[in-house]
Amino acid sequence: EPELVFKVRVRTKDGRELEIEVSAEDLEKLLEALPDIEEVEIEEVEP
């Protein structure tokens, strides 16, 4: 069974934007590691 992958769009407080694809596990780590995120948009990517 393929692992869930999420497309994550992040905007930081200083206005930088970042778009990455991460696994569910990595997404959890990412959110814990970035306390200064202003906006996060997450969508599931079809395998």
Rank of each mutant, 00 (worst) to 15 (best):
I20Y: 14
P35N: 14
E28N: 09
E32A: 14
R16M: 07
E41S: 11
L31H: 02
E39P: 03
E41A: 07
E43T: 13
L4C: 13
K13G: 04
E32I: 09
K7R: 12
L30R: 01
P2M: 07
P2T: 07
E19N: 10
R11A: 02
G15Q: 02
V8R: 00
L18I: 12
E43K: 10
A24K: 10
K13Q: 05
D36E: 08
R9F: 02
D26T: 06
P47D: 07
P35H: 13
S23R: 12
A33T: 10
E32C: 15
A33M: 13
E39I: 15
D36T: 04
P2Y: 10
L34T: 05
K7E: 00
G15I: 00
D26W: 08
L18E: 03
F6E: 01
K29P: 02
L31T: 02
L27V: 03
E25N: 11
L27P: 00
I37E: 04
V40T: 03
G15T: 01
T12I: 05
K29F: 06
E44F: 13
V8Q: 00
L27R: 01
G15C: 03
A24L: 11
E39K: 10
I42H: 03
V22G: 04
L4F: 10
V45D: 04
P47E: 07
I20H: 02
V22N: 00
K13A: 07
D26P: 01
L34H: 06
V40N: 02
E44P: 12
V8G: 01
V40Q: 02
T12R: 06
S23E: 03
E17H: 11
E43R: 11
K29Y: 06
E21A: 06
P35Q: 14
E21P: 03
V40K: 02
E39N: 09
I20D: 01
I42R: 03
E41L: 13
D14S: 07
T12H: 06
L34D: 04
E46K: 13
E19S: 10
L31P: 01
P2N: 08
A24Y: 09
E32H: 09
E39F: 15
V5E: 01
E28I: 13
R11L: 07
I37T: 06
E44W: 12
S23H: 07
S23K: 10
E1Y: 12
P47H: 10
E19A: 06
E21H: 12
D36N: 09
L34M: 10
V8I: 08
D26E: 10
V45E: 05
I20A: 03
D36G: 07
E21C: 15
E3F: 10
V8T: 01
E3V: 10
V8A: 02
I37D: 06
R16W: 11
V8M: 03
L4S: 05
L18N: 01
R9I: 04
V40A: 04
E39S: 14
R11I: 07
E3Q: 11
L27I: 05
S23G: 07
E28H: 12
R9H: 03
E17Q: 11
L34Y: 11
P35S: 14
L34N: 07
E43M: 14
L31Q: 02
L31C: 11
E1K: 14
V10H: 01
K13N: 05
L34A: 03
D14C: 06
V5F: 11
A33G: 09
E38G: 08
E25Q: 11
D14L: 05
I42N: 02
V8S: 00
R9Y: 03
V22R: 00
F6Y: 10
E44I: 15
R9D: 00
D36W: 08
K7Y: 03
L31M: 06
E44V: 14
L27F: 05
E28M: 14
K29R: 10
E44D: 06
E25D: 09
E17P: 02
P2C: 13
E3I: 10
K7I: 09
E38A: 09
D26L: 08
G15V: 00
E44M: 14
E38R: 06
E43A: 08
E3A: 09
V10I: 13
E19Y: 15
A24E: 05
E19Q: 10
K29E: 05
R16L: 08
E46H: 13
E1P: 11
A24P: 06
E21T: 14
L31I: 05
E44Y: 11
V8N: 00
D26N: 08
P2I: 09
F6V: 04
E44K: 12
R11K: 08
E43D: 05
A24R: 12
P47W: 08
R11F: 05
A24T: 04
I20V: 07
D36Q: 06
R16P: 01
E1D: 12
E3W: 09
E38K: 05
V22S: 02
K7M: 06
L30G: 01
V5I: 12
V22W: 02
I20F: 15
V5S: 08
E32F: 14
V22P: 00
L34S: 05
L4G: 04
E46P: 10
P35A: 14
I42G: 02
A33S: 14
E46G: 11
D26I: 05
E17W: 15
I20N: 00
P47G: 09
V5L: 11
E19F: 15
P35K: 14
E46T: 12
E19C: 12
P47Y: 10
L34Q: 04
K7F: 04
P35M: 14
G15L: 01
L30P: 00
E19T: 14
P35D: 13
T12A: 04
E1G: 12
D14F: 07
G15Y: 01
S23L: 07
D26K: 07
K29I: 05
K29S: 06
R11S: 02
P35F: 15
L34K: 02
E28K: 13
E28P: 08
A33I: 09
D36P: 05
K13D: 02
V22M: 07
D36K: 04
P2G: 10
E28S: 10
R9P: 00
R11T: 06
E3N: 10
P35W: 15
E17G: 03
E19R: 13
E32W: 15
K29T: 06
E41R: 09
V40G: 02
L4Y: 09
E38L: 13
K7W: 04
V40Y: 13
E1N: 13
D36I: 04
E43F: 15
R9T: 03
E1I: 11
L27E: 00
E41D: 08
E28F: 14
E32Q: 12
V8K: 01
P35T: 14
S23W: 09
L30F: 13
D36C: 10
G15S: 01
R9K: 06
D36Y: 07
R16D: 04
G15W: 01
E17M: 14
E3R: 13
D26G: 09
D36V: 03
